[in-house]
Simulated scan of single mutants.
Amino acid sequence: MKNKYFPEEDIEKNDLYFVCYMIERVARHLHQRNRYVVNAIGKEGLSHLLSVANVLHAENPLKVEDDWIKEYNLETSDFDITNVDKELAEKIPTALEMGNVYQRLIVDTMNSKEDYADGILRVYNNEICDVIDNYNCSAFYEPSYVIARAYQTGGF
């Protein structure tokens, strides 16, 4: 994918990782599902955020969160992804860890006609995310090829 503002520059996987990480942070902050954040931002917004990710890396993540919430008019809800059964889930993955899970899934399942923004919308709107984001099970800890295969076959 090419940078929207500097067409000679490629958007790197690390930029995708940063955007996935921030999607997770914002969703947790607002008590929303990731798909809400992704859909509210939309393709154009995602293209913009991917294009400026190399600059946003240097910003305070709390400021980036607040900026996204204001810029895209994101609202709070009552979904708490961290509300888990402590006997089943001893450790809740961090937003960084989940950003990595989603970045790998997007890259592992992209086709040649997609860019990263399309991949984000496709993956985060798939039902498999409800399983990956259920921290009472271990789907998010599976190797990336297992998660990609589950995505492609429709389930674990």
Results as ranks from 00 to 15, higher is better:
residue 98 M to I: 04
residue 28 R to A: 06
residue 143 P to D: 10
residue 94 T to R: 01
residue 9 E to W: 07
residue 21 Y to G: 00
residue 90 E to A: 06
residue 66 D to S: 15
residue 154 G to P: 04
residue 26 V to S: 00
residue 35 R to S: 10
residue 101 V to W: 08
residue 90 E to L: 05
residue 56 L to P: 01
residue 84 V to D: 03
residue 81 I to W: 05
residue 44 E to A: 13
residue 125 N to D: 12
residue 22 M to R: 11
residue 64 V to M: 01
residue 129 C to Q: 05
residue 26 V to W: 00
residue 155 G to K: 09
residue 8 E to H: 14
residue 33 R to V: 06
residue 62 L to A: 13
residue 21 Y to F: 07
residue 59 E to A: 12
residue 67 D to W: 14
residue 33 R to I: 06
residue 57 H to Q: 15
residue 28 R to T: 11
residue 5 Y to H: 15
residue 2 K to S: 15
residue 16 L to A: 05
residue 119 G to M: 10
residue 99 G to P: 03
residue 82 T to Q: 07
residue 10 D to S: 14
residue 1 M to F: 09
residue 111 N to Q: 10
residue 77 S to G: 15
residue 86 K to F: 08
residue 17 Y to K: 13
residue 29 H to L: 09
residue 127 E to I: 10
residue 10 D to N: 14
residue 107 V to I: 12
residue 63 K to W: 07
residue 15 D to V: 01
residue 30 L to A: 06
residue 2 K to Q: 14
residue 82 T to H: 08
residue 62 L to D: 15
residue 155 G to F: 08
residue 67 D to R: 14
residue 151 Y to T: 01
residue 100 N to W: 04
residue 137 C to T: 11
residue 51 S to H: 03
residue 124 Y to I: 02
residue 29 H to W: 08
residue 68 W to I: 10
residue 76 T to V: 12
residue 152 Q to A: 09
residue 50 L to Y: 09
residue 95 A to L: 00
residue 114 E to V: 09
residue 7 P to Y: 02
residue 1 M to C: 10
residue 146 V to I: 13
residue 115 D to K: 07
residue 17 Y to M: 06
residue 21 Y to T: 00
residue 38 V to R: 07
residue 89 A to T: 10
residue 98 M to N: 00
residue 122 R to A: 05
residue 95 A to R: 01
residue 52 V to C: 13
residue 52 V to G: 13
residue 60 N to I: 11
residue 143 P to V: 07
residue 23 I to P: 01
